[in-house]
């Protein structure tokens, strides 16, 4: 199937969904009322109008800015922590062996239950959300870096040592690029989790951000507001993901195409 046909079909699905939604919520059926009450289901046009209004009035930008800041901070701090600890564990067998059960236990914990504690510790500002995102990102990056350092090809390593590299040079030319590869292969997942941490944190208690916006709309039964918030969140994720893909393509240029696709 060629590209144009595929895109046309993909668009068709979206349009069909919106059309069905529109018809079910606007065309009167029983007692002059539509089958789905707009109060519960809103209508596509209303959601579109609200989204447009939010962007036009500029009111949404503040919330987007907060969520973006939290996401970026959670990702940056979580990734930095994951890299450092991942490296340390991979290079020091004893450390890894001693902490293994605790790492597994901490990772097994559903992170959402920590949100109220973080709100208590760090307040309702951005830092409690960053903390929640951190706990999610940290483990993904940690496991990937650990694996990456552990699974450096023995031949590549032996070769680098035969070239006379010292520990620092091995770190720079062999371990670090190998670990980065694994980290970047999980980049989409970890950025996604940073965002989940931010939005869930906002949802559970805050005064700004997309999660807050959605929660606020829900609390007054403003279904249009909820859907509009979801639409904005989706757009936000797509933009973020495109950005991540661009970074990935730039940094992993040395990888064969097949590997990049399966990652």
């Amino acid at each position: 199937m060629n590209r144009v046909t595929l895109i046309a079909l993909q668009l068709l699905v979206g349009v069909a969904f919106l059309l069905v939604w529109h018809l079910l919520t606007t065309v009167p059926v029983v007692d002059g009322k539509p089958l789905f009450a707009p109060f519960f289901f809103s209508t596509p046009l209303e959601v579109l109008a609200r989204t447009w209004k939010d962007f036009a009035s500029g009111e949404i930008w503040r919330h987007l800015g907060i969520t973006l800041l939290e996401t970026v901070l959670a990702f940056a701090i979580g990734a930095a922590g994951g890299i450092v600890v991942g490296f340390a564990f991979a290079r020091r067998e004893l450390l890894a062996a001693v902490f293994d059960p605790y790492v597994k236990a901490a990772n097994a914990l559903p992170r959402v239950v920590l949100a109220p504690i973080f709100a208590l510790w760090f307040g309702l500002g951005i830092w409690s959300k960053v903390a929640l995102g951190f706990t999610l990102v940290f483990f993904i990056v940690f496991f990937n870096v650990y694996q990456g350092v552990k699974e450096v090809s023995p031949t590549v390593l032996a070769n680098a040592r035969m070239l006379g590299m010292n520990e620092r040079q091995l770190l720079r030319h062999v371990y670090w690029p190998a670990a980065l590869t694994w980290m970047f292969s999980s980049l989409h997942t970890s950025v996604g989790f940073a965002l989940v941490g931010a939005v869930v944190g906002e949802y559970l208690g805050s005064a700004g951000g997309l999660g807050y916006k959605i929660h606020e709309a829900e609390s007054v039964f403003d279904v249009t507001g909820v859907f509009s918030g979801m639409v904005i969140l989706t757009i936000f994720v797509i933009v973020l993901d495109t950005f991540v893909t661009a970074i990935e393509n730039r940094l992993l240029v040395w990888r064969p195409d097949t590997a990049a696709k399966t990652a």
Partner: peptide, 9 residues
């Protein structure tokens, strides 16, 4: 086996 660093040109 291949011993080149795959991330280097």
């Amino acid at each position: 086996a291949d011993a080149l660093m795959p991330w280097k040109t």
